[in-house]
Structure formats: C-alpha cells, structure tokens
C-alpha cells in the first residue's frame, strides 16, 4: 500500500493517497498492459482522501482496479477531494459497468457503508461517464439522495471539468479510439492469442517433417521455417497491423479488414518466396494465413470502443463460416500434401 501517505479523520481513519505515481505504479501499469498477473491489481474498496478534503470537497467514484484508481488520483493532483472505490473485483470501470459490478446497487451500498452522508454536506457524487453503462443515476438519487454527475470519459479532463462547474463538454463525453489507444491494446492482443498460434505452430512443424509419408528432420526443419514465418506474420497481422490500420482498411467489418491484411501478407510472402516451393502448398498456406488474420482481427471487436453487439453478430454470421472453410481447406490440403 505504498500509495497511502497518511491518515485523516476524527471518528474514523481515512487513508490519504499520493497523487504522483512512483516507479512501482508504473511497473504495474506496464505489466497489466502485457496481461501479466492481471488479477493482482486490486485496491481495497472504500473511501480515500486526496489532499486535505473537507465537507465541501468533491467525491469521485472509481473502480478497484489499480490502473483505474492510479489514473484518477494522478489526475486530481493538487485538489482536495474524496475518492470512493467500488468493489468491481479488480476490473476497470467500463468493463465492470458492462458486467454490472460497477453498478447501481454497489454504488448505493458503498455510499451507505462509507457514510458519505456524514463526510460531505453537499449531495453530489462524480461518477466517470463510462460507468453509466452500469449505473442508473435516478435510482441512486432515489435511494441515497445523492445526485450522480457524470464526469469526463478521460481522467485527464477532470481539472477542466471541475473548473467548468462540473460540466463535461461534448469532446469530454466522447469516446475516441486513437492510434495510441489502439497501440496500447496490441500487447494484450498478442498475449491473448499466443497459445492458439503456438499450438498450431507446433502441430504444423511436427507434421512438416513428413514428405511422401516418410518423416525426416531435414524436411521438418525446412518446412518449419516456412510455417513459422507464415503463422507469425498472420498473428502479427491480426493482432497488430489490423488494429493499427483500422480506420484506413476499406471495409466496415473487422473480419473483412483482417481478410484484406491477410491477403496482403500472403502476397508479400509469396513474392518473397517464403511460402514454400510447391504452388499448392503456397496456396494452402495462404488460406491458413488469411483465415487466421481475419479471425484474430475479428476478435479485436472486443477491444474496440465502437462495435455494437448487433453489428458483431451480423459480421460473424458470414465471417466465421468463411474463416472455418478457409482454415480447414488450407490445413487439410497442406497435410494431405505431406502424405501423397
């Protein structure tokens, strides 16, 4: 708990937290981006203080995911405020709101159990706008008397939101999906698909040792290189290239965007003579590349900030059968080639 610098309060001890992030906090942020020990980033739910807040100070609500909490406290440096941390099982605000853990009931209960009523004289509570997916402002008001004010989507905008008398401008309310937002997500995408791509790779390297139904380590090595290059490119294509090029790929559905990237990768590899020597083998590898890139790209819908459930369902209806057919045709042809 090295973020706690002090305690205040007369009838109870409320931890005061630092508003600068130390090297440990930064390390945690990097690890979380690479999905390492994702479950270790919980903050105990409850009330915290920033600076020296009194009964007029603002109350900010956040999730008990360390990154959400760190983000908030580092952006309200210099203020005197209260932070109310909800129990979201260590998940960030938006995700938790979608699941309902950052939700109306948890907020009502937490306002009561932390006695916010005694802490402040006003009856306003600032909830991050993305929390609105789980919080019903009028229900909170009915139950607790506290008026929920939705704050900006990004914590960096909090100071301007405060100086504008708790009004969020249109741009503060809008979710964006910039190049850097997408870039930050790519490590998690890479880690997320790693085990599938590795299993496929191992299978194909082992089978690659067969030629005319006889196994040799030389053949395994030769075709292993080809297979590794193809699969790695497909993997990077789906997990990095599609996310980065998202706005510029001329298709709406993510599966189609991925298909375009997969075809481009196939063509480049083919002309670089990296898809083997046999034309049928090359084509079968291309099928596998295109299917994998398209599938991995389609999964980026989960990380994106603008895809609707209806839309994703619609694109999957045509994309999944296509990916399966491409993948199975490619893989089966490729395997059969080793045994004839």
């Amino acid at each position: 708990m090295d973020y706690i610098v002090d305690y205040i309060g007369i009838d109870r001890k409320i931890p005061v937290v630092a508003t600068f992030l130390n090297s440990y906090d930064r390390l945690v942020a990097i690890k979380a981006r690479w999905a390492i020990n994702r479950n270790d980033y919980k903050i105990p739910p409850g009330i915290y203080a920033v600076g020296n807040p009194d009964e007029k100070a603002n109350v900010f609500v956040t999730a008990n995911y360390k990154l959400s909490f760190d983000h908030l406290r580092s952006n309200i440096a210099g203020m005197n405020a209260w932070i109310l941390v909800l129990d979201t099982k260590g998940i960030n605000v938006w995700c938790a709101a979608g699941k309902g853990t950052f939700g109306t009931n948890e907020l009502i209960n937490r306002i009561r159990s932390c006695d916010i009523e005694k802490l402040v004289s006003h009856r306003k509570i600032i909830v991050p706008q993305l929390g609105a997916v789980g919080v019903s402002a009028h229900e909170v008001k009915n139950e607790t008397g506290f008026k929920v004010i939705y704050g900006p989507v990004r914590a960096v905008d909090i100071p301007s939101f405060i100086s504008a008398n708790l009004r969020a401008t249109e741009s503060m309310r809008t979710v964006k999906f910039t190049l850097s937002d997408r870039l930050i997500l790519t490590p998690v995408e890479l880690v997320g698909h790693f085990k599938y791509i590795i299993s496929l790779l191992v299978l194909m390297i082992l089978l690659g040792g067969f030629k005319n139904s006889t196994f040799s380590f030389n053949d395994m090595f030769d075709s292993g290189i080809v297979v590794t290059v193809s699969l790695l490119c497909a993997y990077i294509g789906g997990a990095v290239i599609t996310p980065l090029l998202l706005p510029w790929l001329p298709a709406r559905s993510f599966a189609m965007k991925g298909l375009i990237v997969g075809v481009a990768i196939s063509i480049v590899l083919y002309f670089a003579q990296l898809t083997g020597t046999n034309i049928i083998e090359s084509i079968s590898l291309m099928f596998i590349i295109v299917a994998s890139t398209s599938f991995i790209s389609m999964n980026f819908t989960g990380a994106s900030t603008y895809t609707s459930l209806s839309g994703v369902k619609k694109e999957m209806k045509t994309a999944v059968p296509m990916q399966l057919i491409f993948f199975l045709t490619g893989l089966l042809t490729w395997i059969i080639l080793r045994f004839i």
Binding site: G98, A132, V133, G134, V135, S136, A137, H138, F254, M298, N299, T301, G302, S304, Y306, T307, S308, L309, S310, G311, V312, K313, M316
Partner: peptide, 20 residues
C-alpha cells in the same frame, strides 16, 4: 439505464466476437 422516463430501449450487450 439513465433515462428517468423509460423512453429509450436498446438490446444492450458487448460487441465482442470472443464473448459471443
């Protein structure tokens, strides 16, 4: 969820292929 008059309806959910 936040319309006090219940004037809005939407089939909400996560637009996430892996989730589906």
């Amino acid at each position: 969820l936040n319309c006090p008059e219940n004037a809005i309806s939407v089939l909400s959910g996560v637009g996430c292929a892996a989730g589906i």
